[in-house]
Design a protein around this nucleic acid. Structure first.
Lengths: 212, 212
DNA sequence: CGGTTAATTGAACGCATTCAACACGAGTGG
DNA sequence: CCACTCGTGTTGAATGCGTTCAATTAACCG
């Protein structure tokens, strides 16, 4: 899996800051990058692997915030501390910079612009997530999820780095329902699963219509 | 209703830009401030009244994004155009500034910071909204909604500027379910509704526990 | 190969929706 | 003042979608 498209040719000030000031860490599968309620004083960029953010409610229910692929920035959060934890879904290489270090670098203007831009990307995802959770049925949620992954990995066969539980917790459903919807979509020949962690879209139109 | 608390003593660069460059408009009840898919080239600040943002899916389902009260900024959206429309819930006075005008004013640094800050506030709301929609039942959603309103209007009696349909579309429920939950909460003496558009919290602890 | 975890499938249940009827409130006109 | 209407909100009964609980199958790894 290459995902070279995730690194745009023109690097933003934030990307440059990562390149120059970032310390590279590797995080093992299922290890935590930062915990819920940790201080949010760093930015992170995925170099390889996939990161998942999630939040646990007091009574143990889990909501996953999003999944971050190579080239994507995470850890941008509104408050002084993280409302969502971040964990490595697969073994990950991650670049980290302290926020204060980023500020000192390259003059504030460009950096602030870049941070704002990254924050906007994050916001767009959140808006999409709200639409998904608010007014869509299980079929549509699952279809939308698969579409989203396929757009990020425009290869013929898309792999699912996350398990069913993670999908379910992202979609606000249960593993059973997710599983049922997947077999249903497969039964209608809209998608095909050669293995549980790998799929292929056979009817883009149909999937798109569902994901709407 | 005063809501003076919504205007902090120390004005941000954005607030100052509004004060100096903003043109004031008044929008009648149910009139549109901007439409879905309009170009997003302005910032807005509510002076009086309440604004609602909402998005319509292709097949007519509606999701309400949020409600904005006096002192709050809206219209900050990630992309070049609005994914959510904005409408006046009540008659509103709104200050408007072009984004380009804001940039030209006061040097980029402070303005960018202020915009970033406002964007973060918006992001926080979106995160909260995702949590609400993803892993909460109808009771909890309604309770959480009432809590949110009560926190913004720390008076004894809180009024609901929006109708049941708006609440439902914000919460991802139907009007009937919202209504049932309200009567249920009232039956348990957690809240009291002297009229349909006005309520009072009788058991903060119980409501808080539900909203968690 | 077992042994273990993850994923699928089945059946019963429950919560929210749907569809329908009724109540309430505000505004209008007799 | 009452009668009438229209919009909005509430309540009831039946349906359905997703969940829950339980059992089976598939994938992974020693």
């Amino acid at each position: 899996m290459t995902l070279t498209h995730a690194f745009p040719a023109d690097e933003s000030a934030l990307d440059q800051a990562f390149d120059r000031l970032g310390t590279r860490i590797t995080v093992a599968r299922d290890e935590e990058v930062y915990a819920q309620d940790d201080e949010a004083d760093r930015f992170y960029r995925v170099m390889s692997g996939v990161v998942r953010t999630s939040r646990l409610t007091a009574d143990g229910r889990r909501q996953v915030g999003d999944f971050y692929y190579a080239g994507e920035v995470f850890g941008l959060e509104p408050g002084p501390d993280h409302r969502f934890a971040a964990e490595a879904l697969t073994e990950c290489e991650i670049q980290v910079v302290r926020r204060s270090a980023v500020r000192a670098f390259a003059g504030d203007v460009e950096v602030d612009r870049a941070i704002l831009e990254a924050t906007r990307v994050e916001m767009e995802r959140l808006q999409e997530h709200v639409m998904l959770l608010g007014r869509k049925g299980a079929r549509e949620r699952v279809a939308g999820f698969l579409m989203g992954l396929a757009q990020r990995q425009p290869e013929d066969h898309v792999d699912l780095p996350m398990g069913r539980q993670d999908m379910a917790d992202y979609l606000g459903l249960t593993i059973e329902t997710v599983s049922r919807m997947l077999t249903q979509l497969q039964g209608e020949a809209i998608v095909a699963f050669p293995s549980t962690r790998r799929f292929h879209i056979r009817k883009w139109g149909a999937l798109e219509a569902l994901a709407a």
